[in-house]
Structures are given as C-alpha cells and as structure tokens.
Design a protein around this nucleic acid. Structure first.
Length: 120
DNA sequence: TCTCTGACTGCGT
DNA sequence: AACGCAGCCAGAG
C-alpha cells in the first residue's frame, strides 16, 4: 500500500480527525490504533488509522503529528519502518521519557492514553 | 471489476 | 497459549 495521491473527501476528513486525536496525546503517553478507531466511532477499522498516519507524517511532520505515540495494542512499534530512519520512532519516544526495548513500549499499561476516556 | 495488501483487532478453535 | 480468520476500507495494478 502506498500513499494516496488524491484522497476522497471522506478519506481526507477521516485522516484529519485521526491526526487531530494524535495531536492530543500528551508527551510521554501512548495510545493505540484501535483506541483511536473506537473513539472515532469505528467508522473505519484500526487499519485505516495506521493508513491515516502514513499520510500524516510526510504531510505535517513529526512535530505537528506525534505519530510515535501511536502503537499497536501490545505496545509494539509496528509503524517504525515508516519513519525517516528505522530508529526514529523509538528515539522520539525515548526523548520524551518512554522506554522502548525490542520494539516494545515499557510499562505500556500505565503509559496508555485512551481518547475515549480522556476526551469524554 | 477483481484481487491483493496493509502502521490492526477481536473472537473462535 | 498459539493460530486462523473474518471484518475493517482505500489504493494500486
């Protein structure tokens, strides 16, 4: 799968909603694809959340959309290969105090930030 | 059109 | 506990 060149209106809106939620994740905390999908009403699957981030990073940059704070439900950095370098995602997380060992966020449960709960 | 492939998940076996 | 599988939906070929 590659980047969408001409996203449809609906797709673009979904992408923006995802990016908006990701921007609300506090530094040092992480959330998951599924949590975001659920928060947005699961209109699209969790896969689409990841897809939205592919479009988000090059379009807005790491500073605007902290995509490193989105991991899978097990705390694994499944999206690290989409960053500029293979270690960029891990380094970005460690820079804000999140320890990562073997592609896995340490102390994941207490680091987890659920938009459904926090933005209620 | 059809098929395949995902930065995913949850359920059933 | 490990796997398989279906649902999720948009692009590319």
């Amino acid at each position: 799968m590659s980047l969408p060149r001409n996203p449809t209106e609906a797709t673009r809106n979904f992408f923006e909603e995802v990016q908006e939620v990701v921007r609300l994740v506090p530094p040092g905390r992480v959330t998951t694809y599924g949590a975001i999908a659920h928060y947005l009403g699961a209109r699209h699957g969790a896969r689409m959340v990841g897809y939205a981030l592919i479009a988000a990073v090059p379009a807005r940059g790491l500073a605007a959309v902290p995509a490193q704070r989105v991991v899978n439900r097990n705390g694994l950095l499944t999206g690290r290969h989409h960053f500029a370098t293979p270690t960029a995602m891990q380094e970005a997380l460690e820079a804000e105090g999140v320890q990562v060992v073997d592609d896995e966020v340490q102390d994941f449960q207490t680091r987890f930030w659920d938009p459904q709960l926090e933005l209620a």
